[in-house]
Simulated scan of single mutants.
Amino acid sequence: MLAAFVSTPAPKDPLSVLEVGERPEPEAPDGWTTVQVKAVSLNHHDLFSLRGVGLPQERMPMILGTDAAGLDEDGNEVVVHGVVASPGWIGDETLDPKRTLFSELYQGTMAERVAVPRRNVLPKPAELSLAEAACLPTAWLTAYRMLFVKSGLRPGQTVLVQGASGGVATALVVLGKAAGFRVWVTGRSEEKRQGALDLGADQAFETGARLPERVDGVMETVGEATWSHSVKSLKPGGVIVISGATTGPNPGAELNRVFFTQLSVIGSTMGTREELEALMRMCTATGVRPVIDVELPLTQAREGFERMLEGRTAGKIVFTL
């Protein structure tokens, strides 16, 4: 079957090891099933996999991809939840010390077919296209959990989203506005800032700019490049929710400001099956939809990876099959 995969890591030149070609058909063990993939979205996790981050050589070749939408064995349209809990785990699967994502321990979703635990298969709402649904289980679920599960913020408060154009950032803008937050963003270019305003952001600023006033919360996925600005932008008692560090994981901690102004720093990772169901209900009830930058056939995966690596994104990149 056709798949996008990696056979050897390349930390400094990830695109050099991206392969699109034939891989063996998946085998579904007891309790698992097979999904025919129709759409799969690209995430930074896939670039990290090409670099070998979290994916050692001994697990390769590995099919990439953490989320997908497609058809189950009965032909029903479904969405694949990307977090795989260990056997017997009960409760929030993101807290399972042995949890994994597709393309880490098990073959990923960037293929014509993928084997998944039956629990990870959810009905797709008819209101969402397959391409839109494929954007939800990683980036949009991450944003939903950050805003509505972890932050403790309420509608009417001001939220700063660092990095205006990525998949999680665009989801934060759309979901935040739909829920009644005042949403500010930062972006490196006028084009990215205008794109965020077009999505509904209330104000957009250059990266690192001094804000008109301090905010109640910051949604942080960038890491090293924006961390100091995030801390300095918060009101006393404010909260940073961080779910990624695409520019580097070791920012200056700004610890004096954190304790003196009593800030909260909260980590957030992906989301649960139940939260994915809630996100789909929200999309259905409010009419909000994932922002898709470009749809490409999987045979043109390299173009999508190049766009992400170079930062040429304005929403999600989706591969179709």
Results as ranks from 00 to 15, higher is better:
residue 22 E to S: 12
residue 47 L to T: 10
residue 22 E to D: 15
residue 141 L to K: 00
residue 114 V to N: 12
residue 199 L to M: 11
residue 234 L to P: 13
residue 22 E to Q: 14
residue 280 M to G: 01
residue 219 M to F: 06
residue 72 D to T: 01
residue 7 S to M: 04
residue 143 A to F: 09
residue 296 L to R: 02
residue 307 R to L: 02
residue 137 P to Q: 08
residue 309 L to G: 05
residue 299 T to Y: 07
residue 196 A to Q: 00
residue 78 V to G: 12
residue 184 W to K: 08
residue 316 K to Y: 05
residue 115 A to F: 04
residue 108 G to M: 12
residue 271 G to K: 05
residue 260 F to T: 15
residue 116 V to F: 03
residue 51 R to I: 10
residue 304 G to Q: 05
residue 187 G to M: 00
residue 139 A to H: 07
residue 18 L to C: 13
residue 230 S to W: 04
residue 237 G to R: 01
residue 208 G to D: 07
residue 132 E to D: 12
residue 59 R to V: 07
residue 126 A to E: 14
residue 72 D to I: 03
residue 279 L to A: 02
residue 240 I to W: 05
residue 315 G to T: 00
residue 20 V to F: 09
residue 219 M to E: 02
residue 127 E to M: 10
residue 214 R to T: 06
residue 59 R to E: 15
residue 79 V to Y: 08
residue 26 P to W: 07
residue 148 F to N: 15
residue 84 V to K: 10
residue 118 R to S: 12
residue 70 G to N: 13
residue 294 V to E: 08
residue 179 A to H: 03
residue 188 R to W: 00
residue 162 Q to C: 11
residue 2 L to K: 15
residue 94 T to W: 07
residue 278 A to D: 13
residue 261 T to Q: 14
residue 244 G to F: 03
residue 48 F to C: 10
residue 17 V to A: 05
residue 222 V to L: 01
residue 5 F to T: 08
residue 70 G to D: 11
residue 173 V to F: 07
residue 44 H to I: 10
residue 319 F to Q: 12
residue 304 G to A: 05
residue 60 M to S: 13
residue 53 V to T: 15
residue 40 V to Q: 11
residue 136 L to W: 02
residue 148 F to S: 06
residue 258 V to I: 15
residue 145 R to T: 15
residue 181 F to Y: 15
residue 126 A to T: 12
residue 118 R to W: 04
residue 239 V to D: 05
residue 207 T to Y: 00
residue 185 V to I: 15
residue 86 S to P: 09
residue 82 G to C: 14
residue 126 A to C: 07
residue 180 G to F: 09
residue 192 K to I: 00
residue 186 T to C: 01
residue 276 L to F: 11
residue 309 L to E: 12
residue 278 A to W: 01
residue 207 T to N: 02
residue 310 E to T: 13
residue 232 K to F: 13
residue 103 S to Q: 10
residue 34 T to N: 09
residue 137 P to K: 00
residue 19 E to A: 15
residue 245 A to I: 06
residue 162 Q to A: 09
residue 97 P to L: 05
residue 76 N to S: 11
residue 288 V to W: 00
residue 191 E to C: 04
residue 148 F to Q: 06
residue 222 V to W: 01
residue 79 V to F: 08
residue 201 A to D: 03
residue 239 V to H: 07
residue 223 G to I: 06
residue 234 L to Y: 11
residue 308 M to T: 04
residue 203 Q to H: 12
residue 95 L to W: 02
residue 111 A to S: 14
residue 2 L to W: 11
residue 14 P to Q: 13
residue 263 L to H: 03
residue 4 A to G: 03
residue 313 T to K: 01
residue 294 V to S: 09
residue 217 G to F: 05
residue 39 A to V: 10
residue 239 V to A: 12
residue 227 W to M: 02
residue 314 A to K: 08
residue 232 K to I: 04
